[in-house]
Structures are given as C-alpha cells and as structure tokens.
C-alpha cells in the first residue's frame, strides 16, 4: 500500500493505506482517533465533519490521496482540554443526548464561527443544516453557538408549572 504523510491536529503522521481510502477511516482505523464518526458514508449527515485547512470537510467523502500536506483538525484537536469556546458553550447548554453526532456538530459550528463570528439566525441555520441530529438537539445547538459567539439567545419558555 502506498505511504501518505499527513498533518493531524498539529502532528505529522505517516500511514500506509489504499489511495482511495476516505480520510474518515484513516483517522478511525489507522490512527485510532475515533472522535470523528461514521453516520452515512455518503456526505449526508455530517457526523464525520473535520477541518482541512480550516475548511469544513466531510471526511467520509474525501480520499487520503487528496489531503496531501494540508492540515487536518479533528474534534480531538479542537482544544487539548475542552477549552474551545464552543466546547465550553456545549457544556454550559448541556447539548448532547446520545452524543454521536456532536463531534460533527461542533466542527461544523467551529467552521461557521470562523467565517461568521457573530452569525445571524439565517447564517447559523445555513451553516448547521447539513448536520443531522437524530436525537433532536437542535435547539440547544443554536443556543450554544450563540453563547460561544457572545450573542444573547432568545428565551424559549418552558419549565415546571
């Protein structure tokens, strides 16, 4: 199998895999970085979202041979200690339910905030609608993104009566 060098979360890694292997499986199987998830394998759910040179990429749909020396960031590399503003906001809003989609959601949100540090509702919706959450955590995702962006979130109502 051919050798590829790639840079993941700041460290250089060498892997021997088939050239058409999607980045997702290189991360998960070869490098044992399992935070990036497999949901559909077809670019439909966003569970596998990572950043390549800061751009949001579905790692199930890009082959290792296309990565070259570009810098890959995964959920494990977003911060060393859950200190990224989105991670803090995710904890504050207690977003995850099953949690399976959340790595992808956070990576999509990070790409969104990198482009629009103070996103409008429309920008937020557009930036996040390619990521599925079967558990329905969308409301808290919105709140967490607003919180991380330092925006006041609209109150929802609800609670004990």
């Amino acid at each position: 199998m051919p050798d590829f060098s790639l840079n993941v979360n700041g460290s250089d890694r060498k892997v021997s895999v088939a050239a058409n292997t999607p980045l997702l499986w290189v991360l998960r199987d070869t490098l044992a970085m399992t935070g990036t998830k497999f949901g559909c394998g077809a670019g439909l759910c966003g569970a596998c979202s990572v950043h390549v040179e800061g751009e949001l990429v579905r790692s199930c749909s890009v082959a290792i041979s296309e990565i070259g020396s570009k810098k890959v960031t995964t959920i494990e590399g977003l911060s060393a200690d859950r200190s990224h503003p989105l991670q803090k906001a995710w904890i504050a809003e207690d977003v995850p339910q099953c949690g399976y989609c959340q790595s992808g959601q956070i990576m999509a949100a990070a790409a969104l905030l990198a482009k629009s540090p103070s996103p409008t509702e429309e920008e937020l919706t557009a930036g996040m609608s390619r990521n599925l959450c079967r558990c329905g955590t969308y409301d808290r995702i919105r709140k967490a993104i607003h919180r991380a962006a330092g925006q006041p979130a609209a109150a929802n109502g609800g609670g004990a009566q």
Partner: peptide
C-alpha cells in the same frame, strides 16, 4: 456524560 461527548472521547460501540 456531556464532557466526554464534546471532545471525541466518549466510547460508542463503533
């Protein structure tokens, strides 16, 4: 379980 679900460390079956 939230902290483990925001940094990729949560262990699902897969």
């Amino acid at each position: 379980d939230t902290p483990s679900k925001i940094d990729g460390s949560a262990q699902f079956g897969i």
